[in-house]
Design a protein around this nucleic acid. Structure first.
Lengths: 128, 128
DNA sequence: ATGCATCCTGTAGCAACTACAGGTTCAAGC
DNA sequence: GCTTGAACCTGTAGTTGCTACAGGATGCAT
């Protein structure tokens, strides 16, 4: 059993975020001591860590919740998990292509900017 | 002189966003008709378009403002513009690498998920 | 005169936190 | 037993850049 600070250290989820997750129903409400302080079991810490890993992979919170629910089921069907993973992968890949287009646009725009010039090709392109 | 709807169509900035920009001081306050409706000059529409192009390139609003200010100066030094562009490029590039790491992690995690399996390697990795 | 598009203000919601303010409780040292 | 400082509590507001109403006024065409 750990206090919230220890749970935070062990899970890598900031204290404020843990409380936020509880408020939002992402995780179950923690038990409390007589004086009202939250108490976390090892399993609760593992849940926090699980959620954090999902977030690190870019899964939105609702999906992270679903994945955790799946992971708690005995009968967890791998293919459902895989579908979430693949759809997340799709999204990440399309963000990557978007950003790559941005990057090449920015490269082109900055490439012709010469120091001291009063006629800036980048500004010209933004204006026209 | 255009009403806000026309300014929106011409600049590609949604009406609500134009009002938001005005509230936030991103653009100058528009003139009003006797009855209180906003009125946009050709120059104001150009400003909106400029801001939109900056946003499309991923520049944050405060930077978009600075770029517009620079673009209005006679003495605009190209090198300052270039610096903004390069720093934006840096940011885009680092986001790309982050996302590429995510993508490869997701590829690895999903690769071994086989249909019907009750032991999901992806869940195992999220748990451990 | 009527109806419909367009406009107005003001407020709230989104995602996922983060950062206070203002107050209680716990634990360690003296 | 008392003090002090860390850690905890609730509740609210701010972040970024919009977007979506609600509820009402205005403009224009028929």
């Amino acid at each position: 059993m750990h206090a919230i600070g220890e749970a935070s250290r062990r899970s890598g989820v900031p204290i404020e975020t843990i409380r936020y997750y509880e408020r939002e129903g992402v995780i179950a409400k923690a038990e409390r001591t007589a004086s009202g302080r939250r108490v976390y079991t090892e399993a609760a810490v593992a849940e926090l860590r699980f959620i954090r890993r999902c977030r690190d992979l870019g899964f939105p919170l609702p999906i992270a919740c679903k994945l955790y629910a799946l992971s708690s089921e005995e009968t967890a069907d791998c293919s459902e998990v895989r579908d979430f993973g693949l759809s997340q992968l799709d999204e990440v890949n399309s963000k990557i292509s978007e950003l790559q287009e941005l990057a090449s646009a920015l490269e082109e725009l900055t490439a012709n900017c010469a120091e001291g010039s009063t006629k800036c090709p980048m500004l010209d392109r933004l204006r026209s």
